[in-house]
Computed example of a mutant assay.
Amino acid sequence: MAAIDMSGDSITVGVGVTTAQRYATLLANSLSRTIVSRAKSGDMAADQAQKAISQARASTSIATIMVGTNDERVYGTSSVRRGYYIAFLRRLVLDAAAPVRKTGRSTAVAKVGTWFNTQVNTIGITTTQKGAKATATVSGTAVYIGTILQNHPSARGVAQVKIDGQIVGTVSSDGTGGMNTYNGLSYGSAAFRFGGLSNGTHKVELTVTSASGQNFRLDYISGNGGQAGVKTFVSNIIRKTAYGYAKVGGSDANVSAYNADIATLISTLDSDSLGVYLVNNWSGFNPATHLLPDGVHPNPAGHSRIYSTFRGAILAHI
């Protein structure tokens, strides 16, 4: 039986409802798929992205992602921290939708200078040397660079990015603006995108520009060409009640700001022809009738609503 690969938090876990009432169970049963879930209560995008690094998905699988309700309340209105959220969410999406990549430890990435293996995964490399370089050739109209953001004074490494000899920007491993998650993770797998390229092969060169002693971490370099990922369905964030916001943090206005960023992210990755789709669970979700008394977690009616929205989006694209 084909699988449905799920990333999420306590909503996907189904806190406060029975296993049979969870949207995850309803969705899997309706689509005749088995559940592969890494969801955990309290998790944020960084936690889930870290858990999905080496997840292998069969070509017949689909992926669902519903993570952000904890990011919104923990990261608050900080534009820097919201940027962390999108970088982590982008990585989580790309690990499902764009798994073909040149990993840092592979010979497909040419290295100049001193690089070490990253300790928290099996694909990445780290350098503290200014001027160190990593180069790879990828294909498509967009380039993705996977890295790790860390909240540590010595993890502020920055690399200049050149594509076909032209400087297009930088990638940083700096998470010192407060990227720590609710569940205590002080680092997370992130990804950055550089688009607008002509379709074809592209030479990507990263040169560390930060001072020696600062860690720059590289997991992979990839492009949107030749990808073999699974169709990936990404939910936006549902609202809480006034009581729920007062209890755990956040606001309707902040949820809307995060959802606008999610919509932009998914639209951009969809334009890269990756098979990534936005699931608008925010629309039509009524906190007054779809949440438990805690004002945070969906009740059975809320899970039924989420299931129905996910199911409609999935059936429209498979």
Rank of each mutant, 00 (worst) to 15 (best):
A191Y: 00
T201Q: 13
A191P: 00
D219E: 15
R217W: 00
R217C: 02
V204D: 00
A190I: 03
T201K: 10
A211N: 13
T207D: 04
S210Q: 06
R193D: 08
F192R: 01
G196W: 12
S189Y: 12
S189V: 14
F216N: 05
Q214D: 08
A211E: 14
G196T: 14
H202R: 08
V204P: 03
S189W: 07
A191M: 12
G195I: 03
L206W: 00
G200M: 11
T201W: 00
Y187L: 11
F194E: 04
N199Y: 04
E205M: 06
K203S: 15
F192S: 15
G195T: 07
S210Y: 05
I221T: 01
A211C: 09
N215Q: 13
I221D: 07
R217M: 03
A190S: 15
G188S: 12
G196Y: 09
L197D: 01
G200E: 00
G213Q: 10
T207I: 09
G188I: 08
L206A: 01
L206G: 07
D219Y: 08
G196Q: 11
I221F: 07
N215H: 10
R193F: 04
L218G: 01
E205K: 04
A190D: 04
L206R: 06
D219Q: 13
G213S: 11
I221V: 15
A190Q: 04
L206K: 00
G195D: 15
G196A: 11
G196C: 12
H202T: 02
E205R: 05
H202M: 14
T201F: 12
T207V: 12
E205F: 02
S198Q: 12
L218E: 01
K203H: 05
Y187Q: 14
L218S: 03
A191W: 03
N215Y: 11
A211V: 14
L206F: 02
F216G: 04
I221C: 05
G196N: 12
R217L: 01
G196S: 11
Y220K: 02
I221Y: 06
N199W: 02
L197R: 05
S198E: 10
V204L: 11
S212C: 11
H202G: 07
A190M: 14
G213P: 00
R217N: 09
L218I: 09
D219T: 10
T201M: 10
F194I: 00
N215F: 10
G200D: 11
L218W: 05
G195P: 02
T209V: 15
Y220T: 08
Y187I: 02
Q214R: 03
V208C: 05
H202A: 01
N215K: 09
G196E: 12
E205C: 02
I221E: 05
T207F: 04
S210I: 08
S198Y: 06
F192N: 04
T209Q: 14
R217V: 13
V204H: 08
K203L: 13
F192I: 14
Q214N: 13
F216E: 00
E205T: 15
V204G: 06
T201H: 08
V204Y: 05
N215S: 13
G195A: 15
S189G: 13
K203D: 12
D219K: 05
A211Y: 09
L206E: 01
F192P: 00
N199Q: 13
N199L: 11
S212V: 10
L218F: 07
T209P: 07
G195H: 07
G195M: 09
Y187E: 14
R217G: 04
I221Q: 03
A191V: 05
S198G: 13
D219I: 10
S210R: 07
G196D: 14
S210M: 08
G195R: 05
